[in-house]
């Protein structure tokens, strides 16, 4: 039987979820490099997979890129698409900027809050949805506009809100790994 590589052995040991994150970051540095310019692509990838960039993840990335964790935190806190807190699998971002505002975004905002049972900046208890504001998403001729993860919905009306939520649930049930608890779920608790 071939001896497993040390990295593999580590990830296979029971109860070492933390190390699996380290391994994952190792693989990301293989892909993006260990120079400073790799920082944002690595963080974007971590965010996409885990819906959070935890303090521990920031520490690991800092180690790999040989920079201070404070530098990593500085970057994570700067960009609105990176997040040090857990966000739902489905992030709904409603454009709040001028043309969407004029097109009636307030009613959409209220209905989203009602139907999801959360306020802007919050995540549902089941971890499925987060509700956020976005600044102009470049759909000003078809407002109100919302981004759902990377998908865009335009000409949204209050009665369409529930339809969109249902469509999201269906869409993501088809790709269940998006709802699957991640390896290091202990980091998700706020």
């Amino acid at each position: 039987m071939p001896t497993p590589s040390p990295a593999k052995a580590r990830s296979q040991r029971p109860g070492t979820k933390v190390n699996s994150l380290q391994d994952e970051i190792d693989r990301l540095t293989e892909r993006f490099g260990t120079e400073r310019k790799a920082l944002i692509p690595i963080l974007q990838e971590i965010k996409k997979r885990h819906h959070i960039i935890s303090g521990y993840a920031m520490q690991c990335v800092a180690d790999r890129l040989s920079i201070s964790p404070a530098e990593v935190y500085g970057v994570v806190s700067f960009y609105s698409f990176l997040h040090e807190e857990y966000q739902g699998r489905i992030v709904i971002r409603l454009c709040r900027t001028i043309s969407c505002d004029m097109a009636g975004k307030d009613a959409i905002a209220r209905q989203l809050q009602n139907d999801l049972g959360i306020k802007f900046g919050e995540t549902t208890d089941d971890g499925k949805f987060s509700l956020e504001w976005a600044n102009c998403v470049g759909m000003c001729d078809r407002g109100p506009a919302i981004l759902v993860n990377e998908q865009v919905f335009t000409h949204v009306t209050p009665e369409k809100v529930q339809e969109i939520i249902q469509a999201c649930i269906k869409m993501y049930e088809k790709t269940p790994d998006l709802f699957k608890k991640n390896g290091h779920s202990h980091e998700h608790s706020k």
Partner: peptide, 11 residues
């Protein structure tokens, strides 16, 4: 980066 509110021509 087309972020200026009301701009969507680059898209």
């Amino acid at each position: 980066d087309e972020g200026e509110p009301g701009t969507f021509k680059d898209r």
